[in-house]
Computed example of a mutant assay.
Amino acid sequence: MTAPAVPGLICAFGFDCLGRGRRLAEDKIAYPPAGDGEWLWLHLNFADWRCRRWLSETFGFPAELANRICDAPVHQHVSAWEGVLFGHLADFRREFDADSTEFAWLHFALGGRFLITGRAKAVQSAERLRQVIGAGLSFANPAGLLSHLLSLYTDVLDTALHRLSDELEIIEDHVLDEHHRGERKRLMLTRREIAQLHRHMRAMRRALQTAERASIPTPGGFALTAARLSNLDQDFADMEARARFFHDEIDAKLTAETNRQLFTLSALTAAFLPPALVAGMFGMNVEGIPFTGSPWGFWAAAGLCALSSGAVVLYLGLMDRS
C-alpha cells in the first residue's frame, strides 16, 4: 500500500533484511514493505491532526489507539494494544542553534515491521538516531531501533551529569575561596536544572519498570535503559545533596558577613551616640550653658565628645573579649 502524502512527515527510513537503513522519499513510503524482512521507521510531527486518520488508514490502528498515540500525554508510560507497543517518554528539546536540556515529549508506536515516533516539539534523540543511521549503523528490527533511541536519551543525561558536576566543583572552589557573592544565583540555576533532569529521569525509570511489572512485552533494551537510569538516579541524588549543602554554606557565609557588617554599624552608632548627646546639650539655646564665655569652651566640649566615644569603644572592646 503506497501513501503519496504523509501528513506531518519529518523523515522516513526503510530497512532491509540486513538492518541497513535508507532514507525514503514521501511517495516511496509503503506499508507493509514489499520485501521479506523489511521494515519502516517513520518520524512524524503530531501537531498535524491529520496524522491520526493517516495512521488508522495506513496501519489499521483503531481510532482510539491512534488518538492515544498522538494525544499530548500527562505522564510517562508504556502500554500495549493488540501487538502494538506504544507510549510517551521524556526527551530533550532540539534547538536549531544548540542542544538543550529542556523537556520534550517523545511519542512512539512499535510493531513487528514498523517503528513510528512522533513529537509536537523537535527532540534530540530522533535527530541523533537519524544521524547514526546515515552513518551506516544497522539495526536488526524495530525493537532494536527503539532501544537505541532510548540509549541516546541516557547518553545525553550522562553528559549533562558530568557537566553539572563540573559546574558544582567550580562553585565549590569559589565558595571555599570566599568568592561567593555571584555564586548564589549560579547555584540556584544549577540546582533547578539538576532537579528537573532528575524528576524526568525518575519518571521514565518508573514507566519502564511499571511496564515490566505489568508483563508488557518490551524490547530487551528497555531493561538495560532502566538499569542505567537506576545508576544515574543515585548520581543525581548525590548531586542534589551537594548542591543543597553548597546553598546552605553560601547562606551561612552571607549571614556571617551580614552579622559582621551589622556589628560594625552598631559599634559606630554606639561610638557616635554619646558625642551627639554632648553636642546636642551644648547646642541648646538656653541660659546657663557652660563655657559660653570661655575662649577654650569649644575644646572642652570636643574633649568631652572624644572622652565619651573612647569610653564606649573601650566598653565594646571589653565586651568582645568576655
Rank of each mutant, 00 (worst) to 15 (best):
A3N: 04
P4D: 07
C11R: 14
G14H: 07
F15I: 03
L18S: 02
G19F: 03
R22W: 00
R23G: 04
R23W: 02
D27R: 10
I29G: 03
A30Q: 00
Y31I: 02
A34F: 00
A34N: 03
G37N: 04
W39N: 12
L40F: 06
L44M: 11
F46H: 01
R50H: 02
R50E: 01
R53E: 07
W54S: 07
L55I: 10
E57L: 11
P62K: 09
L65D: 11
L65F: 08
D71R: 09
P73L: 15
V74Y: 12
Q76M: 13
G83Y: 12
H88T: 13
A90S: 08
A90L: 03
D91I: 01
R93Q: 09
F96A: 15
L106Q: 12
L106N: 13
A109G: 10
L110S: 09
G111L: 13
L115D: 05
I116R: 09
G118Y: 01
R119F: 01
R119M: 04
A122F: 10
S125N: 04
L129Q: 09
G134W: 00
L137P: 01
L137Q: 11
L137R: 13
F139P: 06
A143F: 09
L145G: 08
L145I: 05
S151R: 13
L152E: 07
L152S: 07
A160L: 06
H162M: 14
L168E: 05
E169T: 11
D173L: 10
L176C: 04
L176H: 02
E178T: 07
E183P: 00
R184Q: 11
M188A: 06
M188F: 02
T190C: 03
R192I: 02
I194A: 04
A195P: 05
Q196W: 00
H200P: 01
R202I: 07
R205K: 10
R206K: 14
R206E: 14
A211E: 04
E212H: 10
R213V: 12
S215D: 02
P219T: 05
F222E: 07
T225G: 08
L229D: 08
L232A: 12
Q234Y: 00
E240C: 06
A241I: 03
F245P: 00
F246C: 08
H247S: 15
D251E: 15
L254H: 11
L254A: 15
T255M: 13
T255K: 14
T258D: 12
Q261Y: 04
L262R: 12
L265Y: 06
L268G: 07
A270Y: 02
P274V: 06
L277N: 07
F282L: 09
G283H: 08
M284K: 11
E287Y: 02
F291T: 08
F291E: 04
S294R: 13
W299E: 14
L304G: 06
L304K: 05
S308T: 03
S309G: 12
S309C: 14
L314Q: 12
G317N: 15
L318M: 15
L318T: 15
